[in-house]
Design a binder for these strands. Structure first.
Ligand SMILES: [Zn+2]
Ligand SMILES: [Zn+2]
Ligand SMILES: [Zn+2]
Ligand SMILES: [Zn+2]
Lengths: 148, 148
DNA sequence: CTCATTATTGATACTTGATATCAATTAGGC
DNA sequence: GCCTAATTGATATCAAGTATCAATAATGAG
Protein backbone atom coordinates (compact mmCIF):
# COMPACT_ATOMS: atom_id res chain seq x y z
CA UNK A 1 0.00 0.00 0.00
CA UNK A 2 1.00 3.63 -0.44
CA UNK A 3 3.54 4.61 2.17
CA UNK A 4 2.85 8.14 3.37
CA UNK A 5 -0.81 8.61 2.63
CA UNK A 6 -3.20 8.83 5.54
CA UNK A 7 -6.61 7.63 4.42
CA UNK A 8 -9.40 9.48 6.15
CA UNK A 9 -12.50 7.38 6.58
CA UNK A 10 -16.18 8.23 6.85
CA UNK A 11 -17.35 8.49 10.45
CA UNK A 12 -20.97 7.47 10.09
CA UNK A 13 -21.38 4.86 12.75
CA UNK A 14 -24.93 3.81 12.02
CA UNK A 15 -23.95 3.20 8.41
CA UNK A 16 -21.00 1.15 9.58
CA UNK A 17 -23.45 -1.04 11.47
CA UNK A 18 -25.80 -1.40 8.50
CA UNK A 19 -22.84 -2.33 6.33
CA UNK A 20 -22.36 -5.26 8.68
CA UNK A 21 -25.88 -6.42 7.82
CA UNK A 22 -27.31 -5.17 11.11
CA UNK A 23 -30.72 -3.54 11.40
CA UNK A 24 -31.14 0.12 12.16
CA UNK A 25 -32.86 0.24 15.52
CA UNK A 26 -33.60 2.94 18.05
CA UNK A 27 -31.07 1.59 20.53
CA UNK A 28 -28.24 1.36 18.01
CA UNK A 29 -28.99 4.82 16.63
CA UNK A 30 -28.92 6.24 20.14
CA UNK A 31 -25.53 4.66 20.82
CA UNK A 32 -24.08 5.76 17.48
CA UNK A 33 -25.35 9.31 17.83
CA UNK A 34 -24.04 9.61 21.34
CA UNK A 35 -20.56 8.39 20.40
CA UNK A 36 -20.42 10.78 17.47
CA UNK A 37 -21.46 13.71 19.63
CA UNK A 38 -18.98 13.21 22.47
CA UNK A 39 -15.98 13.19 20.10
CA UNK A 40 -13.66 12.10 22.91
CA UNK A 41 -12.57 8.64 23.90
CA UNK A 42 -14.94 6.92 26.29
CA UNK A 43 -15.47 3.73 28.24
CA UNK A 44 -18.40 1.36 27.87
CA UNK A 45 -19.59 2.22 31.37
CA UNK A 46 -19.58 5.93 30.61
CA UNK A 47 -21.75 5.28 27.61
CA UNK A 48 -24.16 3.20 29.71
CA UNK A 49 -24.47 6.05 32.19
CA UNK A 50 -25.04 8.57 29.39
CA UNK A 51 -27.75 6.39 27.83
CA UNK A 52 -29.88 5.04 30.65
CA UNK A 53 -32.67 4.38 28.15
CA UNK A 54 -30.54 1.76 26.41
CA UNK A 55 -29.78 -1.53 28.17
CA UNK A 56 -26.24 -2.31 29.22
CA UNK A 57 -26.11 -5.46 27.13
CA UNK A 58 -27.09 -3.54 24.03
CA UNK A 59 -24.52 -0.84 24.66
CA UNK A 60 -21.78 -3.45 25.00
CA UNK A 61 -23.01 -5.34 21.97
CA UNK A 62 -23.16 -2.25 19.81
CA UNK A 63 -19.66 -1.24 20.80
CA UNK A 64 -18.43 -4.69 19.87
CA UNK A 65 -20.10 -4.47 16.48
CA UNK A 66 -18.49 -1.10 15.85
CA UNK A 67 -15.06 -2.42 16.78
CA UNK A 68 -15.59 -5.43 14.51
CA UNK A 69 -16.58 -3.05 11.72
CA UNK A 70 -13.36 -1.09 12.26
CA UNK A 71 -15.31 2.06 13.09
CA UNK A 72 -14.12 2.19 16.67
CA UNK A 73 -10.70 1.55 18.18
CA UNK A 74 -10.38 -0.30 21.43
CA UNK A 75 -7.48 0.90 23.53
CA UNK A 76 -6.17 -1.26 26.33
CA UNK A 77 -5.75 0.73 29.52
CA UNK A 78 -3.58 -0.82 32.21
CA UNK A 79 -5.52 -0.70 35.47
CA UNK A 80 -8.86 0.03 33.96
CA UNK A 81 -11.55 -0.58 31.43
CA UNK A 82 -10.57 -0.19 27.79
CA UNK A 83 -11.37 3.07 26.07
CA UNK A 84 -12.92 3.47 22.68
CA UNK A 85 -12.44 6.18 20.11
CA UNK A 86 -13.71 6.71 16.62
CA UNK A 87 -11.26 5.42 14.00
CA UNK A 88 -10.75 8.33 11.66
CA UNK A 89 -7.64 7.14 9.88
CA UNK A 90 -7.23 3.66 8.47
CA UNK A 91 -4.08 2.61 10.29
CA UNK A 92 -2.91 4.75 13.15
CA UNK A 93 -1.57 4.95 16.67
CA UNK A 94 -2.68 6.83 19.73
CA UNK A 95 -1.50 9.53 22.02
CA UNK A 96 -2.90 9.39 25.53
CA UNK A 97 -2.58 12.28 27.94
CA UNK A 98 -1.45 10.90 31.29
CA UNK A 99 -3.12 13.76 33.13
CA UNK A 100 -6.55 14.11 31.54
CA UNK A 101 -6.82 10.93 29.50
CA UNK A 102 -7.47 12.69 26.20
CA UNK A 103 -6.87 10.36 23.30
CA UNK A 104 -5.44 11.52 19.98
CA UNK A 105 -4.73 9.74 16.78
CA UNK A 106 -1.64 9.96 14.62
CA UNK A 107 -0.02 8.23 11.75
CA UNK A 108 3.54 8.63 10.61
CA UNK A 109 5.15 6.72 7.82
CA UNK A 110 8.42 6.48 9.76
CA UNK A 111 6.72 4.23 12.27
CA UNK A 112 5.51 1.93 9.55
CA UNK A 113 8.87 1.93 7.79
CA UNK A 114 10.53 1.10 11.08
CA UNK A 115 8.30 -1.95 11.43
CA UNK A 116 9.50 -3.31 8.16
CA UNK A 117 13.13 -2.73 9.09
CA UNK A 118 12.58 -4.45 12.42
CA UNK A 119 11.59 -7.64 10.65
CA UNK A 120 15.17 -8.94 10.64
CA UNK A 121 15.63 -8.34 14.36
CA UNK A 122 12.53 -10.24 15.32
CA UNK A 123 12.35 -13.96 15.82
CA UNK A 124 9.28 -14.80 13.71
CA UNK A 125 6.93 -13.18 11.25
CA UNK A 126 5.44 -9.79 12.06
CA UNK A 127 1.67 -9.79 11.71
CA UNK A 128 0.80 -6.49 13.36
CA UNK A 129 1.78 -3.91 15.91
CA UNK A 130 0.48 -1.44 18.39
CA UNK A 131 1.97 1.71 19.76
CA UNK A 132 0.85 4.28 22.25
CA UNK A 133 2.58 7.52 23.08
CA UNK A 134 1.92 8.92 26.51
CA UNK A 135 1.92 12.69 26.62
CA UNK A 136 1.02 15.67 28.68
CA UNK A 137 -1.30 17.45 26.28
CA UNK A 138 -1.07 21.16 25.57
CA UNK A 139 -4.21 21.84 27.57
CA UNK A 140 -2.78 20.21 30.67
CA UNK A 141 0.58 21.89 30.12
CA UNK A 142 -0.95 25.33 29.94
CA UNK A 143 -3.30 24.83 32.86
CA UNK A 144 -0.27 23.85 34.98
CA UNK A 145 1.80 26.81 33.82
CA UNK A 146 -0.90 29.46 33.85
CA UNK A 147 -1.94 28.43 37.31
CA UNK A 148 -5.69 28.48 38.17
CA UNK B 1 21.49 8.00 27.86
CA UNK B 2 23.61 5.80 25.60
CA UNK B 3 21.75 4.98 22.45
CA UNK B 4 22.43 1.39 21.47
CA UNK B 5 23.33 -0.27 24.75
CA UNK B 6 20.88 -2.73 26.21
CA UNK B 7 21.35 -2.87 29.95
CA UNK B 8 20.74 -6.35 31.30
CA UNK B 9 19.40 -6.39 34.81
CA UNK B 10 19.62 -8.93 37.63
CA UNK B 11 16.59 -11.19 37.75
CA UNK B 12 16.47 -11.98 41.44
CA UNK B 13 12.89 -11.29 42.33
CA UNK B 14 13.07 -11.89 46.06
CA UNK B 15 15.94 -9.41 46.26
CA UNK B 16 13.91 -6.92 44.30
CA UNK B 17 11.23 -7.23 46.96
CA UNK B 18 13.69 -6.82 49.82
CA UNK B 19 15.11 -3.76 48.12
CA UNK B 20 11.64 -2.29 48.46
CA UNK B 21 11.87 -2.72 52.22
CA UNK B 22 9.63 -5.77 52.22
CA UNK B 23 10.18 -8.79 54.43
CA UNK B 24 11.31 -12.11 53.06
CA UNK B 25 8.45 -14.47 53.75
CA UNK B 26 7.51 -17.96 52.68
CA UNK B 27 4.65 -16.76 50.50
CA UNK B 28 6.72 -14.15 48.69
CA UNK B 29 9.59 -16.56 48.15
CA UNK B 30 7.20 -19.11 46.71
CA UNK B 31 5.77 -16.56 44.27
CA UNK B 32 9.21 -15.30 43.27
CA UNK B 33 10.62 -18.77 42.76
CA UNK B 34 7.65 -19.87 40.72
CA UNK B 35 7.85 -16.86 38.41
CA UNK B 36 11.57 -17.38 37.90
CA UNK B 37 11.07 -21.04 37.08
CA UNK B 38 8.30 -20.68 34.50
CA UNK B 39 10.32 -18.20 32.41
CA UNK B 40 7.31 -17.45 30.24
CA UNK B 41 4.77 -14.69 30.54
CA UNK B 42 1.87 -15.53 32.82
CA UNK B 43 -1.36 -14.16 34.22
CA UNK B 44 -2.13 -13.59 37.88
CA UNK B 45 -4.79 -16.30 37.82
CA UNK B 46 -2.36 -18.82 36.36
CA UNK B 47 0.01 -18.10 39.20
CA UNK B 48 -2.78 -18.54 41.74
CA UNK B 49 -3.59 -21.94 40.25
CA UNK B 50 0.07 -22.95 40.27
CA UNK B 51 0.45 -21.92 43.91
CA UNK B 52 -2.65 -23.11 45.76
CA UNK B 53 -0.72 -22.90 49.03
CA UNK B 54 -0.47 -19.12 48.68
CA UNK B 55 -3.58 -16.99 49.05
CA UNK B 56 -4.94 -15.13 46.04
CA UNK B 57 -4.61 -11.77 47.75
CA UNK B 58 -0.96 -12.40 48.45
CA UNK B 59 -0.25 -13.49 44.89
CA UNK B 60 -1.84 -10.31 43.55
CA UNK B 61 -0.06 -8.17 46.12
CA UNK B 62 3.33 -9.70 45.38
CA UNK B 63 2.88 -9.21 41.65
CA UNK B 64 2.03 -5.58 42.27
CA UNK B 65 5.14 -5.10 44.38
CA UNK B 66 7.28 -6.65 41.66
CA UNK B 67 5.79 -4.38 39.02
CA UNK B 68 6.36 -1.37 41.28
CA UNK B 69 9.95 -2.48 41.72
CA UNK B 70 10.36 -2.66 37.95
CA UNK B 71 11.19 -6.36 38.13
CA UNK B 72 8.08 -7.40 36.23
CA UNK B 73 6.38 -5.93 33.18
CA UNK B 74 2.64 -5.74 32.98
CA UNK B 75 1.33 -6.17 29.46
CA UNK B 76 -2.18 -5.07 28.62
CA UNK B 77 -4.04 -7.76 26.69
CA UNK B 78 -7.18 -6.70 24.89
CA UNK B 79 -9.97 -9.11 25.81
CA UNK B 80 -8.23 -10.63 28.75
CA UNK B 81 -6.26 -10.34 31.93
CA UNK B 82 -2.90 -8.60 31.71
CA UNK B 83 0.18 -10.76 31.38
CA UNK B 84 3.38 -10.38 33.32
CA UNK B 85 6.92 -11.13 32.30
CA UNK B 86 10.26 -10.66 33.96
CA UNK B 87 11.90 -7.40 32.94
CA UNK B 88 15.35 -8.38 31.75
CA UNK B 89 16.29 -5.23 29.93
CA UNK B 90 15.87 -1.75 31.36
CA UNK B 91 13.69 -0.22 28.67
CA UNK B 92 12.19 -2.52 26.09
CA UNK B 93 9.20 -3.52 24.04
CA UNK B 94 7.45 -6.80 23.53
CA UNK B 95 6.71 -9.28 20.85
CA UNK B 96 3.60 -11.36 21.36
CA UNK B 97 2.88 -14.44 19.29
CA UNK B 98 -0.73 -14.28 18.16
CA UNK B 99 -0.95 -18.06 17.99
CA UNK B 100 0.68 -19.32 21.18
CA UNK B 101 0.94 -16.15 23.27
CA UNK B 102 4.69 -16.38 23.79
CA UNK B 103 6.10 -13.05 24.92
CA UNK B 104 9.52 -11.82 23.89
CA UNK B 105 11.48 -8.74 24.74
CA UNK B 106 13.40 -6.49 22.42
CA UNK B 107 15.04 -3.15 22.36
CA UNK B 108 16.18 -1.25 19.34
CA UNK B 109 17.67 2.19 19.35
CA UNK B 110 15.80 3.11 16.19
CA UNK B 111 12.55 2.91 18.08
CA UNK B 112 13.84 5.26 20.73
CA UNK B 113 15.32 7.64 18.17
CA UNK B 114 11.99 7.67 16.37
CA UNK B 115 10.27 8.76 19.55
CA UNK B 116 12.46 11.79 19.81
CA UNK B 117 11.85 12.70 16.17
CA UNK B 118 8.12 12.32 16.66
CA UNK B 119 8.13 15.03 19.29
CA UNK B 120 7.45 17.76 16.71
CA UNK B 121 4.48 15.90 15.24
CA UNK B 122 2.79 15.44 18.57
CA UNK B 123 0.56 17.99 20.20
CA UNK B 124 2.02 18.05 23.70
CA UNK B 125 5.00 16.74 25.62
CA UNK B 126 5.97 13.10 25.28
CA UNK B 127 6.34 11.41 28.67
CA UNK B 128 6.52 7.77 27.62
CA UNK B 129 5.53 5.19 25.11
CA UNK B 130 4.58 1.59 24.65
CA UNK B 131 4.87 -0.68 21.69
CA UNK B 132 3.95 -4.25 21.01
CA UNK B 133 4.74 -6.24 17.91
CA UNK B 134 2.43 -9.10 17.13
CA UNK B 135 4.15 -12.02 15.48
CA UNK B 136 3.80 -15.62 14.52
CA UNK B 137 6.80 -17.06 16.31
CA UNK B 138 9.20 -19.46 14.66
CA UNK B 139 7.84 -22.37 16.66
CA UNK B 140 4.30 -21.75 15.45
CA UNK B 141 5.54 -21.16 11.91
CA UNK B 142 7.38 -24.46 11.77
CA UNK B 143 4.59 -26.46 13.38
CA UNK B 144 2.23 -25.10 10.71
CA UNK B 145 4.62 -25.90 7.87
CA UNK B 146 5.61 -29.33 9.11
CA UNK B 147 1.95 -30.27 9.16
CA UNK B 148 0.36 -32.42 11.89
C1' DC C 1 16.05 -16.51 74.03
C1' DT C 2 11.67 -13.85 75.05
C1' DC C 3 8.69 -10.49 74.37
C1' DA C 4 6.64 -6.59 72.01
C1' DT C 5 5.93 -4.42 67.77
C1' DT C 6 4.86 -4.30 63.22
C1' DA C 7 4.31 -6.44 58.79
C1' DT C 8 2.10 -10.04 56.47
C1' DT C 9 -1.22 -13.42 55.41
C1' DG C 10 -5.44 -15.32 53.54
C1' DA C 11 -10.51 -16.48 54.04
C1' DT C 12 -14.29 -13.93 52.93
C1' DA C 13 -17.00 -10.42 51.09
C1' DC C 14 -17.30 -7.14 47.76
C1' DT C 15 -16.58 -4.32 43.40
C1' DT C 16 -16.26 -3.72 38.65
C1' DG C 17 -16.43 -4.90 33.88
C1' DA C 18 -18.44 -7.79 30.87
C1' DT C 19 -21.12 -11.82 28.98
C1' DA C 20 -25.06 -15.49 28.84
C1' DT C 21 -30.01 -16.37 29.01
C1' DC C 22 -34.35 -15.96 27.24
C1' DA C 23 -39.12 -14.14 27.04
C1' DA C 24 -40.98 -10.01 25.07
C1' DT C 25 -40.55 -6.74 21.45
C1' DT C 26 -39.42 -4.77 17.01
C1' DA C 27 -37.89 -4.32 12.12
C1' DG C 28 -38.33 -5.39 7.44
C1' DG C 29 -40.07 -8.08 3.58
C1' DC C 30 -44.14 -9.70 1.26
C1' DG D 1 -51.24 -6.21 8.07
C1' DC D 2 -48.68 -10.44 8.96
C1' DC D 3 -44.89 -13.43 9.51
C1' DT D 4 -40.32 -14.44 10.67
C1' DA D 5 -35.97 -13.48 12.17
C1' DA D 6 -33.34 -10.08 14.56
C1' DT D 7 -33.04 -7.40 18.55
C1' DT D 8 -33.70 -5.91 23.15
C1' DG D 9 -32.93 -5.67 28.10
C1' DA D 10 -33.92 -7.43 32.88
C1' DT D 11 -31.64 -10.70 35.29
C1' DA D 12 -28.27 -13.96 36.45
C1' DT D 13 -23.77 -15.08 36.07
C1' DC D 14 -18.88 -14.83 35.39
C1' DA D 15 -14.11 -13.06 35.83
C1' DA D 16 -10.50 -10.22 37.56
C1' DG D 17 -9.14 -7.85 41.16
C1' DT D 18 -9.49 -5.22 45.77
C1' DA D 19 -10.94 -4.30 50.79
C1' DT D 20 -11.41 -6.15 55.41
C1' DC D 21 -9.59 -7.78 59.39
C1' DA D 22 -8.53 -11.38 62.81
C1' DA D 23 -4.84 -14.66 63.05
C1' DT D 24 0.01 -15.39 62.20
C1' DA D 25 4.85 -14.62 61.33
C1' DA D 26 9.15 -11.80 61.03
C1' DT D 27 12.30 -8.48 63.30
C1' DG D 28 14.58 -6.14 66.72
C1' DA D 29 15.42 -4.80 71.54
C1' DG D 30 16.54 -6.27 75.79
ZN1 LIG E 1 -7.71 4.70 17.01
ZN1 LIG F 1 1.59 1.46 12.71
ZN1 LIG G 1 8.89 -6.33 29.49
ZN1 LIG H 1 10.92 2.35 23.66
Amino acid sequence: MASGIAITVEVDLITALEDQGLRRTYARSAVATRIESVSEAFTAEQLCRDLPEVGRATVYRTIRHLVDAGALCKLPILDGAPMYSIARVEHHHHTICSKCGAVGEFRHSTVERLMRSLEKEIDGEIVGHRMEIFITCNQCLSSTNGGE
